[in-house]
């Protein structure tokens, strides 16, 4: 993959501008749907940067996983929870934003300073370029075998857990005694304190929404 150096520089500039502006859009735009699409743009631009860095496999993984899965998941979430909500005004919100902006700017300056004054061991060995995919495979089955296997447990557990939490339920009874259960904490909220219904019969709450005050 030969790219003339000036072209490469232009590509880097364009992609990083897209990343930076897109990221600002993600956090600043009032409409969350635009934010989600901009997030997809950021992910794609980052994949482009990986291509510039000679990492075609990771770029493909970035597109497939981030754009294809995470971003779509986020769009679905927005669709599912998208109720027009009048967010109540909070006093001092602007001040909070400015203050946290200052803190983040400070953090940015710090990170930038560290990036520039550290004597990184450049230039390193020559990049292996297109053989990267083979090398990644070798790593995954040699020195990174343990995290690779553990990641499979993580994914399995995340999948099961996400299904359990997100599905609507078939089972909501105490499996041993057969009494109805509400899938809530056994420690009930303070206000409706359960005096008349002695345990272990866990009383079924009429509504799952328990307001403390």
């Amino acid at each position: 993959m030969t790219i003339a150096s000036s072209t490469q520089f232009l590509c880097f500039a364009a992609l990083s501008a897209a990343v930076a502006i897109g990221a600002l859009g993600v956090v600043l735009l009032p409409n969350i749907v635009y934010s989600a699409f901009l997030l997809g743009g950021v992910f794609l631009s980052v994949a482009g940067l990986y291509l510039l860095l000679n990492a075609s496999f990771v770029a493909a993984a970035q597109v497939l996983v981030y754009v294809g899965a995470v971003n779509v998941l986020i769009l679905f979430a927005i669709m599912l929870v998208n109720k027009k909500e009048a967010m109540a005004e909070i006093p001092g919100l602007a001040l909070r934003r400015v203050l946290s902006g200052a803190v983040c700017a400070g953090l940015f300056v710090l990170l930038l300073r560290v990036a520039f004054i550290t004597p990184w061991a450049t230039p390193g060995p020559e990049p292996i370029g297109d053989e990267a995919t083979i090398r990644i495979g070798e790593h995954l089955f040699s020195d990174y075998l343990l995290p690779f296997e553990l990641a499979s447990v993580l994914l399995l557990m995340a999948m099961i857990g996400a299904i359990v939490l997100a599905r609507r339920d078939v089972l909501s009874a105490d499996i041993v005694t057969g009494e109805p259960a509400d899938q809530g904490l056994i420690e009930k909220s303070r206000t409706p304190l359960l005096l008349e219904t002695p345990a272990p019969a866990s009383p079924a709450m009429p509504t799952p929404v328990l307001e403390k005050r």
């Binding site: 990174y144 553990l150 557990m157 809530g184 904490l185």
Partner: peptide, 30 residues
């Protein structure tokens, strides 16, 4: 004893903990 292993095991622990704390899913507090 390796940053990658530490990260993946840390996340296995954390993600499982998030799921467990939300396990009482009909309860807003959980």
């Amino acid at each position: 004893t390796d940053l990658v292993s530490i990260f993946v095991s840390l996340e296995t622990l954390s993600v499982a903990s998030y799921l467990l704390s939300g396990y009482m899913k009909r309860d807003a507090r959980s």
